[in-house]
Design a protein around this nucleic acid. Structure first.
Length: 490
RNA sequence: GGCCCGGUCGUCAAGUGGUUAAGACACCGCCCUUUCACGGCGGGUUCACGAGUUCGAAUCUCGUCCGGGUCACCA
């Protein structure tokens, strides 16, 4: 017996926004397919005509391309199971819905929106449809149809018994049939509902693994009843634990805007790398065998397995995401880092060509988000106001008095440097410290303070002086010196 | 509220009857160092609670509690 080729699909609704939860679903679908040598299909679920958003499909293409989830079939690349856009498949759904009516598994419903609303008001807020049209006589149905009365087609659920299915993550789940509503299959505008279109398309497109968030867990029996009605093979279900966000009060709820950025492009805008986002979300709900946490997409494909998907919801942790981003940034080749960081360099140096190489050297080991860069290097552009006591540092053995000497010596030494390079500055200053008989820190602390105007800086004194240039460096050291001398007099 | 699913450090989590209950993030301390960061070392009453099964339970069973999901002509 030959195993069936594994096929998964990512079926987003074009909302113009790629939530990380959606992206994770797409990722897992891709990983399941690719780890088993299968196909990954993209299908656009645009059956809600009221929520159509201009350009939203492009966001989907753009995001998938950006993270490397290449689909084998889809609206843009074609394939033998098209069309891959549901609005172009309307006739298919209608045919199947009508077939279901003929077989006695579905029925026409002519209830108005008002009547349905009134059902809710009178009973409790959770009351469902009362199956008012389920047993309408055939003549009545024909008459209403002929009169052009608006209608929907509903699925006829069994009134008794229960439906059991097996989920690859959650195991065996049983739901009483009386809990299941006679759901709408075909809406009055002729479009199918999500649940119905999914079953039809997943079958027609020969999807073997239906992967989705576990908010669909309780509606799965409806799907099975549909598959059974048609006599189709039921796919493997893979329900994923939800991604949660942490609230101010410590409680958690489904990840949403108030928890921070939740859209893929928002995260990128915030300075996270696409590779980081993919790696991080892969780990939300799935755990590799060993202790390694950094995985490229290719490595994820090699290591992924359904049986290591977790059942419990995971809280999205921006701290860990940020740490991981730092790991990715540090691993970047320097040229690549410079390329990515250059727009941020230019924010601080709009008029001059930033020294990419030296900036990269001081920033790449320290930055965890690209967006931190302007703030971190702002002091290069303008010397901040600072207090003279920044010169005092116990560990470096500096105080207001010896800082004066150090600065004087440093200025004298630096003025003589012919080539303003890190190496030259480095060698000269260290030689000076030796000559003065002080530890490096005693000389370099005051120099760095005067050059930067603050205690915490990316990079050390030498790097800062290099970026500043000779003229500006000497100017700042002079300012520092004067500040100390003025303090002396008071 | 009915139904469904979960519950191992603050967070992500390994763990499938016998472990000193891994690892990572965050936090704290120390080292390295020219500040910070990186790196190195170290630190922590974590198995929701209560019964039961068993020589032995984080692991199996039941109950309780807590959390989440779902109950649309949205997906």
């Amino acid at each position: 017996m030959q195993a069936k080729r594994v096929r998964t699909r990512f079926a987003p609704s074009p909302t113009g926004f790629m939530h990380v939860g959606n992206l994770r679903t797409a990722l897992y679908e891709y990983l399941i397919a690719k780890s088993m040598g299968g196909d990954f299909v993209l299908r656009i679920e645009d059956t809600d005509q009221e929520r159509l958003v201009e350009g939203a499909v492009d966001v989907i293409y753009r995001t998938l391309a950006r993270v490397g989830l290449k689909h084998d079939e889809g609206p843009d690349v074609g394939g033998e199971y098209g069309p891959y856009i549901q609005s172009e498949r309307r006739d298919i759904y209608r045919d199947y819905a009508e077939k279901l009516v003929e077989m006695g598994h579905a029925y026409y419903c002519f209830c108005t929106k008002e009547r349905l609303d009134s059902l809710h008001k009178e009973g409790d807020e959770f009351g469902g449809y009362d199956r008012h049209c389920r047993n309408l006589p055939k003549e009545e149905v024909d008459r209403l149809l002929a009169a052009g009365t608006p209608y929907v087609i509903r699925q006829k659920m069994p009134l008794e018994g229960s439906t059991t299915f097996v989920d690859a993550v959650y195991g065996e789940i049983t739901i009483e049939n009386k809990e299941i509503e006679d759901q709408i299959l075909l809406k009055s505008d002729g479009y199918p509902t999500y649940n119905f279109a999914n079953v039809i398309d997943d079958h027609l497109m020969q999807i073997t693994h239906v992967v989705r968030g576990c908010e669909y867990l309780t509606s799965t029996p409806k799907y099975n009843l549909l598959y059974e009605a048609f006599g189709w093979e039921i796919p493997t279900y893979v329900h994923l634990p939800l991604i949660m966000g942490k609230n101010e009060d410590g409680s958690v709820s489904k990840l949403s805007k108030r928890h921070g950025s939740t859209g893929f492009e928002d995260l990128i805008r915030e300075g996270y790398l696409p590779e980081t986002v993919v790696n991080y979300i892969a780990l939300l709900g799935w755990c590799p065998k060993g202790n390694e946490e950094i995985f490229s997409l290719e490595e994820l494909v090699q290591n992924f397995s359904i049986d290591r998907i977790s059942k419990s919801p995971a809280v999205f942790d921006y701290d860990k995401l940020t740490w991981m981003n730092g790991e990715y940034i540090r691993a970047l080749p320097q040229e690549k880092f410079i390329e990515l960081a250059m727009p941020y360099f230019r924010e601080v140096f709009p008029d001059t060509e930033p020294n990419g190489k030296i900036l990269a050297e001081i920033l790449q080991p320290r930055v965890t988000k690209l967006t931190q860069i302007p703030e971190m290097i702002a002091f290069f552009r303008e010397l901040p106001e600072y207090e003279k006591d920044l010169f005092v540092n116990k560990k470096s053995k500096t105080n207001l008095e010896n800082s004066v000497d150090m600065l004087r010596a440093a200025i004298g030494c630096l003025e003589k440097i012919p080539q303003w390079t890190v190496d030259q500055i480095h060698d000269s200053l260290l030689a000076l410290a030796q000559e003065l008989g002080v530890k490096n820190g005693t000389l370099l602390w005051p120099v760095r303070i005067a050059a930067a105007g603050m205690t915490v800086t990316p990079g050390g004194a030498m790097e800062i002086l290099t970026v500043l240039g000779k003229e500006e460096s000497l100017r700042r050291l002079q300012i520092g010196l004067e500040k100390l001398l003025a303090a002396d007099e008071s």
